[in-house]
Write a protein that binds this DNA or RNA. Structure first.
Lengths: 224, 224
DNA sequence: TCACACATTAAACACTTGTTCAATCCGGGA
DNA sequence: TCCCGGATTGAACAAGTGTTTAATGTGTGA
C-alpha cells in the first residue's frame, strides 16, 4: 500500500499525473502538455525527465504493470492474485488510476500489458493446481486452458467495468467505475455458477465434446 | 452475411476503410489521411462525404454496432446473440474488421458501444429466462446480475482475444486474432465449468453469502 | 564567495492534424 | 450540343503535437 504522497519528487509527480491521464484518455489522446499541466510543471520538463513521451509511457508501465506483475509472483502463496485484485477493488479511490491504466494496457498493444496478463494467468493456474490437489477445485483435463478461461472471466470485470456498473445501476456513492458495491452485486452470481454450474445437465457439454473431438469443426452448440 | 463487395459506392469504400483503421489503431491514432489513402481517395473527399472525422465515426458506429445490436433484437428466438457471435468468430477473415471495431467501441467511451453491450445483456437475459423455464438452465435468484456475469464472460473472449491466442499459442494458420481454433480450445473448458462448476463444494459460496448478507462489507472469500 | 551541476521554464521549431476552398472532372438531362 | 450539379482533387490554412534550445533559477560542495 503506497503512502498518501504529498512530498513526492517532481519526477514521480509527473509520472503519477501521466498514469492518470494515460489511463483515462489513452496514450494517443493524452498530450504531454496536459500531463505537464496536471503535474504543475512545464512541458519541457516532462521531456527533460523522461526523454520522450514514449519514455514516459515506459516509466508508467514500469511503475504500474511490471511492479504488480512481479510483486504478485513473489508471493508463492496461491490466491495472491485474488488478494491483489481485491486490494485494488476495495480501495477504489486509492487505486482508481492504476486500475484504469491496467485496463488500457490490456486493451492496447503493450508489452507490459502482455506481461501482466501472463502473470495473472500463471497465478490462476497455480491456484487451480493447488486447489485440485487440496480437493477444493474440480479436476480439469486441460488445466492451462481452464486457467485462461478463469483469468479471462475475472479480468472481464476490469475490462467491462464501465458497462457493468452502467447496466446494473449501482446506487453507491460513486456512480461510475468499479467499486465495492459492484463487486458485492456480482460475487454471489459468479460464485453460484462456479459452485453449482450454469446448466442443469451435461447436454451442451456432451454435444460440444462430441462435435469437437469427432468430426466437423463447426461447434454449433457453443455456450452463450 | 454481406457480399464480397467490389463495386461499392465510394462512400461505402471510405466507411469500410475507416472501420478497419479505427478498429486497428483506434479513433485518435487513425488519421483522416490514412483512411483516405486506404480507400484510394483524397482526404478532402472523406470530409465531403461525412462532414467531419466525428461524422465518419458515427457512420461506422451506425454500420457496425447499431445494425448488429438492433438486428439481434429483431430475432425473438433466444440464442441469436450466440449465433451472431458464432457467425462472427467462424468467419474471421470476413468479419475481422467488425470484431476489432466492436472491441474498440466497448473499450472506448462510445454511445453505440453502450447500446451493443446492453443488447448482448438483454439477449443473454432472455436466454437465461427461457432456459430456466425449459429446465435446461439452473434457477438463479438474481437473473439480471447473472445475465451480466454471463455476458461479461462471453465478451471477455472478444476483449482479451489477443492475449488468449497469445498465451494459448494456437498453431492455426492465423497466429493472431480470434479464430475458430481459439474457440475450439476454449469451448470445452468453459462448458465444463458451466456444467459441473468450478469448485467441488459450496464452501466459498456459503462463506461469501454469509459475509455479504450478514455483517461487514469486506467479502474476503471472493472467487479468483 | 564562487562555480558548477542540475532543475525548470518560455519560446520557438518542425511536423502532423482536421478542415477549407477553389479548381477540375464527369455524366446526364434540356 | 451545352450546361449544371455532384464527385473529386491538390493545395493551403489554422490549430495542436512532440521536441529542442537557450536562458534562468537554485541549491550544494570547495
Amino acid at each position: 500500500m503506497r503512502s498518501i504522497a504529498e512530498d513526492l519528487t517532481t519526477r514521480a509527480r509527473i509520472r503519477d499525473a501521466a498514469i492518470g491521464l494515460f489511463g483515462r484518455d489513452g496514450f494517443a489522446r493524452a498530450t504531454v502538455r496536459a500531463v505537464a499541466s496536471a503535474a504543475g510543471v512545464s512541458p519541457g520538463l516532462v521531456i527533460h525527465h523522461f526523454g520522450s513521451k514514449a519514455g514516459l509511457r515506459d516509466a508508467c508501465d514500469q511503475h504500474v504493470l511490471w511492479q504488480t506483475a512481479t510483486q504478485g509472483r513473489e508471493k508463492t502463496d496461491p490466491g495472491s492474485t485474488r488478494q491483489l485484485i481485491q486490494d485494488y477493488l476495495n480501495h477504489p479511490d486509492q487505486y482508481a488510476d492504476e486500475i484504469t491504466y491496467i485496463r488500457r494496457a490490456l486493451s492496447d498493444e503493450s508489452e507490459a500489458g502482455d506481461a501482466f496478463f501472463d502473470a495473472v494467468v500463471k497465478q490462476t493456474q497455480d491456484i487451480i493446481l493447488a486447489g485440485m490437489e487440496a480437493g477444493t477445485i474440480r479436476k480439469f483435463d486441460d488445466v492451462p486452458s481452464t486457467a485462461v478461461v478463469i483469468a479471462s472471466n475475472s479480468l472481464s470485470i476490469l475490462m467491462l467495468g464501465r458497462h457493468l456498473s452502467r447496466t446494473l445501476g449501482t446506487v453507491g456513492p460513486e456512480p461510475h467505475g468499479i467499486g465495492p458495491e459492484l463487486l458485492r452485486q456480482l460475487t454471489l452470481p459468479a460464485l453460484e455458477i462456479y459452485t453449482h454450474g450454469f446448466y442443469t445437465d451435461a447436454r451442451f457439454l456432451d454435444a460440444a465434446s462430441e462435435a469437437i473431438n469427432h468430426n466437423t469443426n463447426s461447434g454449433r452448440e457453443h455456450a452463450p
